[in-house]
């Protein structure tokens, strides 16, 4: 999984958070959860983001940052009592928020697929894996059972399951975790979706298996020019797997950049702290790290990150910082970004 040459337009620099040519475009999306007797918690706050065909966008955030809420809001699967307060989710020219549940159901699984962790929980224990993949294909593609099963077998081959003919008739409990995750990937790809959201999908896998699954996933996404949003809390994966990196904190994108630039020149103090967590160097830690006392939660403060930031100036507590483009395609939400000599 060595870095590959730029394949997507997004990498030529200057890509805006949302722009024409992206298959998924999120505009000013806000989501909140009501809290009894208190102000609602803002889980997502005025968020702009988009993904192009063939592009893998990494969305990095810690627990409570809003990454799963975002994935569910995009899919139209926001759990009650969560509420979309405003903004638009445009997928392939359609306004997702205006669609009926029936229309959404037709899109989910066919045009948009979601891969979640715990692959065994997602599979029906009473059906063979081949039949499950075929069932997804039949539900969306209007094809015969024989044709669907043929397609399912082809998918098992594509995700490199050894001895696919035999595994077609295996039940989920007969597969290892890595195999089950491959089956879930096969299922999500069987209708050739235009957009895939992966929510921490490889976090449960062992490292040697994870490397195999990521390599495979990337090859398939590239091959079919699928757009992908890869949600993770492991910034290490994004470095080797994604074309662009977006860092989310308290429901806001705080930094967005092409992968190469992000790791070369991280500018938001939070991104720098995330990276310093891996460096295991006491001096760097002292310079950038400030512990988190409670959960990450939007506090309606001017800059949400100010409570944890190692460098706070008066304006940080007075005004809400906007996402600014500090170099082509590199956006940072900070008044005093981390600067390095050129």
């Amino acid at each position: 999984m060595n870095p590959q040459p730029a394949q997507s337009e997004a990498l030529r620099g200057g890509e805006q958070p949302v722009s024409a040519g992206q298959v998924l475009r999120i505009h000013g999306l806000s989501v909140s959860y009501p809290v009894y007797g208190q102000e609602p918690v803002k889980a997502i706050r005025d968020l702009d983001l988009g993904v192009r065909p063939g592009e893998i966008l990494g969305l990095v955030g810690e627990s409570g940052s809003g990454k799963t809420t975002l994935a569910r809001a995009i899919m139209g699967l926001l759990a009650r009592p969560g509420r979309i307060d405003g903004g638009a989710v445009n997928f392939d020219g359609r306004d997702m928020r205006a669609l009926s549940e029936e229309a959404l159901r037709a899109i989910r699984g066919r045009d948009i697929a979601m891969i979640i962790p715990n692959p065994r929980g997602e599979l029906d224990p009473l059906l063979t894996v081949g039949r499950q993949i075929a069932a997804v294909a039949r539900a969306h593609l209007n094809i015969t059972r024989a044709k669907a099963e043929e397609l399912a077998l082809e998918m098992l081959r594509a995700v490199q399951i050894p001895d696919p003919k035999r595994r077609f008739n295996a039940y989920p409990h007969e597969l290892s975790g890595g195999m089950a995750q491959r089956v879930v990937i096969a299922m999500s790809l069987v209708c050739s979706p235009k957009f895939i959201i992966s929510d921490d999908a490889t976090s449960g896998l062992d490292v040697t298996v994870q490397a195999q699954v990521l390599d495979l996933l990337r090859a398939l996404v590239r091959d079919k020019r699928t757009a992908m949003m890869f949600i993770t809390r492991d910034i290490g994966i994004t470095a080797h797997f994604c074309d662009r990196v977006a860092v989310i904190y308290a429901g806001e994108i705080v930094e967005l950049a092409p992968t190469g630039r992000f790791f070369e020149n991280p500018m938001h103090p939070y991104s720098v702290m995330l990276l310093a967590a891996f460096a295991h160097n006491p001096k760097l830690r002292e310079k950038w790290h400030k512990p988190l006392a409670s959960l990450i939660r939007s506090q309606g403060k001017a800059c949400e990150y100010a409570t944890r930031c190692v460098h706070v100036e008066p304006q940080c507590n007075a005004t809400h910082p906007e996402l600014r483009e500090l170099e082509p395609g590199h956006f940072v939400r900070c008044f005093v970004p981390v600067l390095r000599p050129a």
């Binding site: 990276l275 460096a279 295991h280 160097n281 760097l284 310079k287 600067l339 390095r340 000599p341």
Partner: peptide, 15 residues
């Protein structure tokens, strides 16, 4: 290698 590069990138930034 990673450690050295991280020190370079993260050490250089003005805080």
């Amino acid at each position: 290698d990673f450690q050295a590069k991280a020190e370079q990138v993260l050490g250089a930034g003005r805080r």
